[in-house]
Design a protein around this nucleic acid. Structure first.
Ligand SMILES: [Mn+2]
Ligand SMILES: [Mn+2]
Ligand SMILES: [Zn+2]
Ligand SMILES: [Zn+2]
Lengths: 136, 136
DNA sequence: GTGAAAATGATTATCATTATCGTTATCACA
DNA sequence: TGTGATAACGATAATGATAATCATTTTCAC
């Protein structure tokens, strides 16, 4: 089955090479914001010759096209996810790294307000909430 | 004049070596969240032998003691500031890198609420608002 | 002053990411 | 269907920020 991301890649007019198809599919198969080497490992299951260089290149390409969002939670290596229709932010479990996505209209509005109060236009933001399970 | 940071270093019982004193002073002399090599360059003005290794070591030490806060705005190299009494977040000009500090009680409360609604305890967060001057 | 422990400076190692470059695949068109 | 131009790939080297190592120097309690 063709993944949503594969369709979007071909819609850009970009060459949908075997490697790009495999990488796109790998991202969809892994849950929760995979890292570059998680994506590479998953891609290797389909084509054991796919190069890490191609993975880096392709992820950057997809990101520049707006098909992927790149995150750098916690100053660590990059993690990716399919770009979503609607913006969201993340709760991140500091033990396990697991994330929960959320969107808070109130916060988003306040952020814009704060920028405006300072005579500035809000272009983007990063908000990450680092959490623990309640009983710990 | 002894800087606030120098006093706080000696209060920890830590050896206040010449290098640590110079690095502490350098941080206070530079405005707006200096990077490691900005701090190093400023320190070299006082002692031209101070090693970049000592700067990294000392910054990490001060951070672990809670005397400094470390930021990684925009996926780039680390920037430091003296730890403040009260928490704040940052507006960051995406052209110049200049920052404005702010604190919004409402947002802070909402963040805690969001964590709690998900059965989680909020340990910390990162919030950066990326902005442009209004006429651009 | 002396010796153990800590700190420093110089240098090397690490790790994620990017650049390079020779080879291979793709595509427009004859 | 061949053919060249161009794009993409794989292997590997380079980069850049930061951490680790280790021999030397400094500090401090005695
Ligand atoms: Mn997400
Ligand atoms: Mn600040
Ligand atoms: Zn948001
Ligand atoms: Zn905050």
């Amino acid at each position: 089955m063709e993944s949503r991301l594969e369709k979007r890649v071909s819609n850009t007019g970009l060459r949908l090479t075997a490697q790009r198809r495999i990488i796109a599919r790998a991202i969809c198969l892994i849950e929760d914001h995979p890292s570059v080497d998680e994506i590479h490992r998953k891609a290797l299951e389909t084509n054991p010759n796919i190069s890490i260089a191609t993975v880096y290149r392709t992820l950057r390409l997809f990101e520049e096209l707006g098909l992927l969002d790149k995150h750098e939670f916690n100053q660590s290596r990059a993690r990716y996810e399919e770009a979503t229709e609607n913006h969201h932010d993340h709760l991140i479990d500091i033990e396990t790294g697991k994330t929960i996505e959320f969107h808070d209209k109130e916060i988003e509005a306040l952020q814009k307000e704060i920028a405006n109060e300072n005579g500035l236009r809000l272009i983007g933001h990063r908000m990450e909430l680092y959490v623990r399970p309640l009983g710990s």
